[in-house]
Design a protein around this nucleic acid. Structure first.
Lengths: 178, 178
DNA sequence: CTCAAAAGCTTTAGGCTTGAAATAATATCG
DNA sequence: CGATATTATTTCAAGCCTAAAGCTTTTGAG
């Protein structure tokens, strides 16, 4: 609970300072909406399918790539830690929705792939999920949606450029919403 | 385990089902941005202050209310489960930033309040936090911010109306971003 | 070839999160 | 008053999440 260094952390602050409050307010609104939508999706996945958002995310990533993904690619695409993916994958394997396949020529690596059952299950889930999102964001009309998509796209891209947060040398071509 | 009803969600739309995809895309963008910002804030809180976002949220809620909040009010304001708050509060108490005070006349209830140290600590944190958010959302200019604040506000309000997710009869006047 | 560095993954410790069950105290109904 | 329902909080089991440490395998410099 102590600032490790009182160091003058002057990070080339953008402009004067009046805008500050506005962006904070905006951030709180964004947070509120995204938490509401997430909570609602999580709840519905739980009640209607006995599943979770992280599981859904993993299945979605694998659904896009029929060849499967390495553990490290998976954690790169989903932007979560390596150890985290291990646990989620363990459970999905136990449920019979995915399999771990050894990689030819590299005994360290593992490729994770959907089983047939996994593919079917996800197809079902994805359709319902899309309908849910459409319903939950129903207040946003098409014009606004378009505007927001491009606006948020620029912000997200800016992050990627600034950070290059790609830890494991992931390919990063599977983000799916680009 | 089965979608109860895929209900034909046809709202006076220009094209048949094209909007659906748009809202899904938008949702993925929102999610991406909010996860990036959250991850960055969490990381900075950890590195610079040895703290976390949930702790910050609790302190923020208490900072607004000098009289303190009951456990149930706290979980209502933060929209997290009761049991969750218990754990976070335990740790903050152990750190000496807040205290649990018995409620006069109701031996079940507890009021949680900032200590002086807690108040000072949070004041520091809040200032830095605001600067971070301003920096992270720097790509959004004031006009857009204004527009987005009101847009997201409508969506958030719609949720509150639709759900009345207020579990413990919370006062709901402390959301702070209204 | 050798062996140290790097890469891929899992394990671990600690914390966050939920829904459900358990505890304890208060309120209400007869 | 006494039994029962409700309310406030904590505890619990299970899962998610991270950073850091550990293990195995591969790579690559000398």
């Amino acid at each position: 609970m102590k600032p490790k260094a009182p160091g003058p952390e002057k990070r080339t602050l953008p402009s004067v300072g009046a805008v500050s409050k506005e962006r904070l307010r905006l951030w709180l609104r964004i947070l509120k909406v995204s938490r509401f939508v997430e909570a609602e999706l999580r709840e519905r996945l739980r009640v209607e399918f006995g599943s979770t958002l992280p599981r859904f995310d993993v299945l979605a990533a694998l659904y896009r790539d029929d060849t499967g993904l390495r553990m490290s690619e998976l954690s790169g695409v989903l932007r979560v830690s390596n150890g985290n993916v291990t646990g989620i994958v363990d459970r999905l394997v136990k449920d019979g929705l995915i399999v771990r396949v050894p990689v030819e020529g590299d005994r360290r690596a593992m490729i994770v792939r959907l089983t047939n059952r996994g593919r079917e299950t996800f197809a079902e889930l994805a359709a319902v999920h899309e309908a849910w999102v459409d319903e939950l964001l129903g207040a946003i009309d098409p014009d606004e949606a378009d505007h927001l998509i491009s606006l948020f796209g620029t912000i997200a891209d800016r992050f990627e450029d600034n950070k290059t947060r790609d830890v494991q040398g992931g390919k990063g071509a599977h983000d799916g919403d680009s």
